[in-house]
Amino acid sequence: NITNLCPFDEVFNATRFASVYAWNRKRISNCVADYSVLYNLAPFFTFKCYGVSPTKLNDLCFTNVYADSFVIRGDEVRQIAPGQTGNIADYNYKLPDDFTGCVIAWNSNKLDSKVSGNYNYLYRLFRKSNLKPFERDISTEIYQAGNKPCNGVAGFNCYFPLRSYSFRPTYGVGHQPYRVVVLSFELLHAPATVCGPKKST
C-alpha cells in the first residue's frame, strides 16, 4: 500500500533546468501520483496529453512515469509533440509517434532571462542524422558540413554543433524561455507502482 506522493514538485520547481540537447530525465515510481497538483503548480502555457485524457490521469496506474525536463524558446514548444519536425524535434528531443503522456510548458522569462542575455541554455544546431525517439546526444564533436574532414577544428564548413540561446527579458514571447516537462507513461507487463490517489488504497 503506497502512500508517499510522487515528487513532481522537485521536477517542476527545480531551480535550474537542463539545456534541451542534454535534457534531464527523472524516473518516478512507487508513489501516489496526484496530477491535479500539477494544474495548480504554475499558470501553464501548455498542458497537452496524448493517448490519455488529462482529467482521467488520477484514475490510472502505470509501471513507471518518466519526467523529462529542459528549456526551449516559446515558438519551439509546438515541436514537443508526436510527429513534429524542426531543429528541436530533429536534433535535441524527439517524441515517438505513439507517445503516451503529457507535455507541460510554461513561460520562464522571469527566471531564465537576463538583461545582458542568459547564454547558459544550449541547443544542438547541427547533426548528421535525426534523433530516434527519446535519444539523447550530448556530443560536442565538430560538425563537418563540407567534404573536407574537420579534424576537430572549427572553421570553414566545420561547425561547433551547439548554439546558445541568449534569453533577454525584452524579447518577444516566441523568443522567451519556456520550461518544459514531458511526462511519459510506461505500461509494462509488470506491477503498477505509480497510481492516482483513488487507485492507491
Results as ranks from 00 to 15, higher is better:
Tyr119Met: 13
Ser108Met: 03
Lys132Asp: 09
Gly51Ser: 04
Thr140Trp: 06
Asn4Tyr: 08
Asn24Phe: 02
Asn118Pro: 11
Ala33Phe: 15
Gly86Cys: 02
Asn40Trp: 07
Leu57Tyr: 05
Phe62Glu: 07
Val52Arg: 02
Ala42Asp: 06
Asp112Trp: 00
Leu183Ala: 00
Tyr119Arg: 15
Phe134Cys: 08
Cys158Ser: 04
Ser139Glu: 07
Tyr159Arg: 10
Val182His: 00
Thr170Met: 10
Val103Tyr: 00
Val71Asp: 02
Asn4Val: 10
Tyr93Ile: 03
Tyr93Phe: 04
Ser69Met: 04
Phe8Asp: 03
Ser164Cys: 08
Glu135Gly: 07
Ala192Leu: 12
Tyr35Gln: 06
Lys110Met: 09
Asp98Tyr: 06
Asn120Tyr: 08
Val32Ser: 11
Asp90Tyr: 05
His175Cys: 10
Val103Arg: 00
Val65Ile: 15
Arg78Trp: 09
Asn92Met: 02
Ile88Met: 02
Asn4Gln: 13
Ile88Glu: 03
Phe8Thr: 02
Lys48Tyr: 04
Asn130Ala: 14
Ala42Ser: 08
Ser19Val: 01
Lys148Cys: 08
Ile2Asn: 13
Tyr39Gly: 14
Lys199Val: 15
Cys158Ala: 02
Lys128Leu: 07
Leu95Glu: 00
Ala14Arg: 08
Phe167Cys: 04
Tyr21Leu: 04
Ile28Lys: 01
Gly174Asp: 14
Ser139Asp: 08
Val194Ala: 11
Tyr119Ser: 15
Pro177Glu: 04
Asn4Thr: 12
Ala67Thr: 03
His189Asp: 15
Val181Asp: 01
Asp98Phe: 03
Ala22Asn: 14
Arg136Leu: 05
Glu76Gly: 01
Asp59Gly: 10
Phe44Lys: 15
Thr15Gln: 10
Asp97Asn: 11
Pro82Ser: 01
Gln176Val: 03
Cys195Asp: 09
Leu131Pro: 03
Val77Arg: 05
Asp90Cys: 05
Asp34Lys: 04
Ser129Val: 12
Arg25Val: 01
Pro197Ser: 14
Lys48Leu: 05
Ala67Asp: 01
Val20Ile: 04
Trp23Ile: 03
Ala89Trp: 02
Val115Asp: 14
Thr85Met: 07
Gly172Arg: 14
Pro149Ala: 13
Arg179Ser: 02
Asn120Lys: 14
Val181Ser: 00
Phe167Asp: 06
Asn157Pro: 05
Ala190Asn: 12
Tyr66Asn: 11
Tyr39Val: 12
Asn109Ala: 13
Gly86Ala: 05
Gly174Thr: 12
Lys26Arg: 13
Ile2Val: 13
Phe45Met: 15
Leu60Gly: 08
Leu188Ala: 14
Val71His: 01
Ser113Cys: 08
Phe45Tyr: 15
Arg73Gln: 09
Leu131Ser: 03
Leu57Lys: 04
Phe45Ile: 12
Phe160Met: 12
Lys114Ile: 10
Phe45Ser: 15
Leu57Trp: 06
Ser166Thr: 14
Ala42Val: 11
Gly196Gln: 11
Phe17Tyr: 06
Arg27Leu: 10
Phe12Arg: 02
Gln79Ile: 00
Asn58Ile: 05
Phe160Thr: 12
Asn24Tyr: 03
Asp68Thr: 02
Ile2Arg: 13
Tyr123Val: 07
Ser116Tyr: 12
Gly117Glu: 11
